[in-house]
Design a protein around this nucleic acid. Structure first.
Lengths: 240, 240
DNA sequence: GTAAAACTGTGACGGCGGTCACCAAATCAC
DNA sequence: GTGATTTGGTGACCGCCGTCACAGTTTTAC
């Protein structure tokens, strides 16, 4: 697949900076960041860090998305959240000096800036606005986690959880020439196995529930593009 | 019930300060804190803040423990975690300016220091060590939440989850004159209903599973005091 | 291109645990 | 104390969904 993948070399010139959770720092902090960061490009499926490892530092995700997951000793695993560009990963571990909480795997070809543990802690202490950004990222992590707990603990059924997930994705819909204005299209890059891990169920059940949604004409699935045809019906399943 | 409940008036003289997550601040910060805090005493069952409310400020829990929970529109609710003395509550809301994520209810008669939103934000910006403590508290929240996600999403059965919870509580056992050294006693102040909400199941199932543990001689229950008689058996149920 | 691997769809089966119902026990209120 | 309320124990029922099995489809690798 031919990607128009462009490396962001200079954080000061990064055009996305202001929309991002972590990167919108003061000029001084950015200049410093420029010196302590190490930029890398990762293919799809690369592992940035592993649950349980001693923290080596943090990663600022510049482009691409990544999956944060945790695994039981039996090999069963669950997705904690999907990280978007502009997020700092490995923060909990870096702040508290404890092992990484999650395994981070890129879902797409990605660029990330690595900052070593020592540099990051100094960076945090020197620039007050970094502390604020760190707090924002940590609150974001908490909110995602609480959402996941609500999904796992308060939902009554798998159809409800799946509907909730689809509706959440639908908050940022695709737009393309020729789309019907009353339909919402989304791009789903997770496999059904991964969706199952996200909502805490089995792959087979995801497949079955999805088939149910399609049969009833609530959604249309064409490859990775899903189109929501009857949003009200999906919303009707959701109680929370 | 006669409590030997003593109010902590002066944070500078608080003897617990150093062991606590938030309170171990610099002398200057503590003096400032002294001026912006408003100390209150709450009975058991008091609600400090409600999920969905606009944030008014944060609470520093001085004595007593509190239950953080979130509720679905159907009235089903789940416990996110139990907060211990020294924690700051309402932090996520205060940092991001969004509604409280959880309802906070005291489990015991408690003392808490309230700091208004505005004062807290200024406090945070003025004293660098406050930022660090805030980060520690937020990472603690994240870790608890991830633990809860693992419990809800990766456990196979209710017996496993309950065993895990009991073993977690057993990390801080009771000690009293005459206890047998190979037995671990814990004090359980949650009702079975609350335990059910903690591990995402129904009250009846908790009762049944607990009965099973007792019948097999793994634990002994006498009022709020539970004694673990066969730790290995409980550990055998846990896979994660 | 072709083969291998990964992903998806679906049937059959059975058990865990949710729900309802009801009573016993403990605790609270006064 | 005595009654009211909350909490705990247990039986019966049954449906959701996890698991196993296998076939069909799509993507990857070369």
């Amino acid at each position: 697949m031919a990607h128009n993948f462009r490396i962001i070399e200079d954080c000061l010139k990064c055009s996305f900076r202001e929309q991002r959770l972590f990167c919108d720092l003061s000029r001084e902090a950015l200049i410093r960041l420029q010196n302590i960061k190490a930029t890398s490009i990762y293919p799809k499926g690369a592992l940035l860090c592993l649950e349980g490892q001693a923290p080596r530092g943090v990663f600022v995700l510049c482009t691409g998305r990544a999956k944060l997951s945790t695994t039981s000793s039996e090999g069963k695993s669950i997705i904690l959240r999907i990280a978007e560009p502009g997020e700092v990963l490995g923060l909990t571990a870096a702040v508290s000096g404890t092992p990484y909480e999650a395994t981070v795997e890129t879902l797409e070809p990605s660029q990330a800036n690595f900052i070593s543990q020592g540099d990051f802690v100094r960076f945090l202490q020197e620039y007050p606005d970094v502390g604020l950004r760190v707090a924002k990222q940590l609150t974001h992590n908490c909110k995602c986690a609480y959402g996941e707990i609500r999904s796992l603990g308060l939902s009554n059924s798998v159809p409800e959880k799946l509907a909730k997930l689809i509706l959440q994705w639908a908050e940022r819909p695709l737009d393309f020439p020729g789309r019907r204005p009353h339909e919402t299209a989304i791009r789903v890059t997770l496999t059904q196995e991964e969706i199952a891990q996200f909502i805490g169920t089995s792959r087979e059940t995801v497949s079955r529930v999805l088939t149910g949604f399609r049969r009833r004409g609530w959604i249309r699935v064409k490859g990775a593009t899903w189109t929501i045809l009857n949003r009200a019906a999906l919303e009707g399943l959701v109680t929370t």
